[in-house]
Computed example of a mutant assay.
Amino acid sequence: MEIDYSPQSVPTAPYRQIAPDSESAVLFLHGITGSPAAWFPIARALSDHGVSVSVPLLPGHGTRWQDLNATKWSDWLDAAKAELSALSQTHSRVVVAGLSMGGALALALGADDSPPTELVLINPALYIDSPLTPLLPVLKHFVASVPAIGGDIAHPDRCEYAYDRTPVAAIASFASAQSKLRNDLWRVECPVTLFISGSDGVVGPLTLRTLRSRLPTAPAIRALRRSRHVATLDNDADTIAEVILEKVTSAGGATAGTPGDRE
């Protein structure tokens, strides 16, 4: 699949293209401190193949890191649920693709009473890999931010437009939600495809082991040997895009080559 990596005019803006003849849609969820830019090239490529796509800007993102500190997991999850509901009303199949925290949000949607058709997870985050994680509930009252976690990309010419600082209160909320999510994985009954990068500076191997042991059905695992954490913008992005396209078109849910309406 041909992917154009040039950014849209406002790289952090949401992106939504609805193809009127498509029975399938893909909801793309970005990571914490990140932006829709992480998914934009893939989403645009799928839209060019007649697939309905939506890449929402999650609350607190796309502005400044201080705004993210004023939001929490429930805000991000509510936004993801609202967009899934909207897409489900007009499409018979909705695939949710999530990167990092977006992967955790996707799993939360999969464990919900109204799950999507299928999940595609790229380096999902089920743990905050730091020895300070147990201290986050207290630390957030004294430390506003720590160094950035964004931009873990092997390709030298691509950017996810993430914040230059990581807000501690937001990370504390995420860590608290991760604990509950790990206990709810048994409720995820929709198929899961899991992409794991060979070198990841953000998410450690414990997430993969947890998903293998706690999901009721074993996920299909694909290795991304040339990419780091933000694999959706990295050297294996075309592989991710092709797998997602295959999932939505194999069921007859999209009209290949038919561009979606511009909204």
Rank of each mutant, 00 (worst) to 15 (best):
S74H: 14
L105H: 09
F174Q: 08
P134F: 10
A79C: 14
I42Q: 02
F142Y: 13
G257F: 05
D164V: 07
W73D: 12
S47T: 06
W186I: 06
P36A: 01
I3T: 07
V53Y: 00
L181C: 04
A25N: 11
D200H: 07
H141F: 15
A148R: 15
A254I: 04
L135H: 09
L208Q: 14
S100Q: 05
D48N: 13
K140N: 10
L121Y: 04
S213L: 10
M1W: 04
S173K: 08
R214G: 00
L29K: 05
I244H: 05
A148F: 10
E263S: 14
A97K: 04
P137R: 12
A70D: 15
G204F: 07
L121I: 00
P205V: 03
S9P: 00
P20T: 09
H61R: 07
R158F: 10
Q89R: 14
V10C: 00
A231M: 05
G201P: 07
L206T: 14
D129P: 02
S213H: 12
S250A: 15
V96E: 10
A79S: 15
K180R: 14
W76R: 08
S92G: 15
I32T: 13
P14K: 05
P124E: 03
A37S: 13
S197G: 02
S35G: 07
G98N: 03
L139I: 15
W186P: 06
V168Q: 04
A25P: 13
G62T: 07
G150P: 08
L57C: 12
H229M: 03
V138M: 13
L185T: 06
L136V: 11
L27E: 09
C190K: 01
A148G: 12
P7M: 01
H61T: 09
D164W: 08
A106H: 06
